[in-house]
Design a protein around this nucleic acid. Structure first.
Lengths: 155, 155
DNA sequence: CTAATTCCGACCAACTTACTAGGAATTACA
DNA sequence: TGTAATTCCTAGTAAGTTGGTCGGAATTAG
């Protein structure tokens, strides 16, 4: 029952973009450095997020990525879904696909998985990037906390 | 965010054992047939569940497996934990290991993962095998429903 | 023109998943 | 005592996923 690092890295990267929201594009080099992850790998994840319409890329020098929507309009669930697919503990309770397994009428565990799915979705969809910014510990970025890194506090 | 089939198969097998609880051991052949899964693969899963103290194996002819505890004492979470490891969306909020990553004091996403973990645990630990038996649709076993297959209704 | 950057596709090693194969140990029962 | 049924154990394995790396093309600010 783990999310992969894809989702984890994605959230961390999106958090950085949310923190810098409204200040122009942030190059991946900076994001990768701050969050200590592979720049090249991040590149792939951002490609996926861009196709999902969650971020915009700005090419060229002084380019980078920025959120396509304000932080309070992007939920953690949106990011996870883009990077890891639908939020469902088993495929047969996937809300998006609504595959509906053949034995669903007689399945004794369906209710369980539905409850689990709903509780996961509730948490993930009710937390936005803006919430993460607010929740971030004061010492989230000790290096330049003097410069007021925790800028984004919900508009 | 999927559980593997290990967990899914395990739950389905445990449900069968719960249904037959108090009626002597059930051979895997029967379980595998009813739930339509590979007997040999199930064997491995049952080995894990046995080591976790959730089932008892009875060797030899007329042998099989039975629950080591009454169905209302075994939660879905117990089964999942035995087969898939600790219930935690990311390793750093693993309650059992309490690994505690080095940057946990400054991590802006820790709260999120803790909330997700707790909501998952709440659902999984509050549902027992007895609950699954109760929840099972009436037509859960059309073949011999006349014989009253849904025997186990909580003691 | 040059440096910085996104964008894109290919490749790869390690790991996990969902099995299968084969056989030893144990037991009920004829 | 023999045989069939069953658990128990160890190994192997094909396919997929993960978490990257590598190299280069396209774009843009200065």
């Amino acid at each position: 029952m783990r999310i992969s690092t894809k989702g984890g890295y994605g959230i961390r990267a999106m958090y950085e973009l949310a923190m810098a929201h409204g200040q122009g594009p942030v190059p991946l080099k900076v994001v990768a450095e701050k969050q200590a992850l592979s720049e090249h790998y991040l590149e792939q994840l951002m490609g996926t997020l861009r196709k999902a319409g969650l971020v915009k890329g700005v090419r060229g020098a002084k380019g980078g990525y920025q959120l396509a929507l304000p932080p309070e309009k992007i939920s953690v669930g949106d990011v996870i879904r883009a990077l890891e697919g639908p939020i469902a503990p088993v495929s047969c309770v996937d809300l998006d696909a609504e595959a509906g397994c053949e034995r669903h009428a007689t399945c004794p565990t369906r209710g369980l998985w539905e409850r689990l799915r709903d509780s996961m979705i509730q948490v993930l969809d009710s937390t936005t990037l803006a919430d993460l910014c607010r929740e971030a510990p004061q010492n989230a970025a000790p290096k330049d906390s003097g410069k007021g890194l925790c800028r984004y506090q919900g508009v």
